[in-house]
């Protein structure tokens, strides 16, 4: 097995609160991996720690075999991990095209900027239409697309998506997941965070279930039953 990201025994403290307990996970290269969990289960904390936004109290993160624990976020990003954080975070005072250019900031991506831009416009025609408009004029769904498109502009090996479907209409979510599949087929590994079990299992190869900062269940998405996940997800959450 060829793991592109390996998380080993990761713990994170938020003040005195322990946000992650000894979390370990492997993300196999070329796959779509999902993390399922309720609000506050520690999914975002995990992603942010992988990206170096939070510092872990213990444990390691490895990317392509090399230790990246505690690295500066921009350095981790430059190794080939892109992340679309919760809430799209587009640059509102820049045009759509400028936002996409920001994705191609790093030297290697910049060389391929024109080609990537064509590719991204092909995937999301609406962005081409609005390319000279300010990002603040986009709808929620369009912003989410822009956020993903901006990540693609980085020409990354892995894209980490934190709740890309949050607050979007089902049609748009469907559309976005189709793009994820396309990109995955082209060789990009995905790590997705979702609250909805069904969607997660359907769109991923492998899934982890998180409850209160721990991983309580994992397995191939095709082999995990909706009921089992939902028991883990809700059961503990409701009665603990």
């Amino acid at each position: 097995m060829n793991n592109i990201i390996e998380v080993n025994g990761l713990s994170v403290l938020h003040g005195d609160l322990r946000a992650l307990h000894d979390v370990s996970m492997n993300i196999e290269s070329g796959k779509i991996v999902s993390i399922i969990g309720a609000n506050g289960a520690g999914k975002s904390t995990l992603l942010n720690t992988i990206m170096g936004i939070h510092r872990p109290a213990g444990g390691t993160v490895r990317f392509e075999g090399g230790d990246i624990t505690g690295w500066r976020t921009s350095k981790i990003a430059s190794k080939g991990i892109a992340m679309t954080p919760e809430g799209s975070r587009v640059f509102a005072d820049m045009s759509v095209m400028e936002n996409l250019w920001m994705g191609a900031y790093l030297p290697d991506a910049k060389k391929a900027r024109a080609a990537q831009l064509e590719k991204v416009y092909g995937m999301f025609p609406v962005l081409k239409e609005k390319s000279s408009q300010l990002a603040s004029f986009l709808s929620g769904g369009q912003r989410q697309m822009l956020s993903i498109a901006r990540a693609i502009m980085m020409n990354p090996k892995v894209i980490i998506c934190d709740e890309i479907s949050l607050g979007l209409a089902p049609v748009i979510i469907q559309d976005i997941y189709v793009k994820v599949r396309e990109l995955n087929a082209a060789g990009i590994t995905f790590l997705l965070v979702e609250q909805e079990i069904k969607r997660s299992l359907r769109h991923s190869d492998y899934s982890y279930v998180m409850v209160k900062g721990r991983i309580v269940m994992e397995g191939k998405s095709s082999e995990l039953s909706h009921e089992a996940v939902s028991d883990a997800y809700f059961g503990i959450n409701q009665f603990a």
Binding site: M51, G52, I53, R72, T73, S74, A77, S78, A82, M83, P85, R89, F91, A92, D93, M94, E98, W101, M102, G103, Y105, L106, A109, R150, M154
Partner: peptide
């Protein structure tokens, strides 16, 4: 643009490698 990005959203800019 990178300077402006850094000032408007530090974390997002870092995620883009800035």
């Amino acid at each position: 643009r990178a300077i402006r990005a850094a000032s408007s959203d530090t974390v997002m800019s870092e995620l883009l490698g800035i």
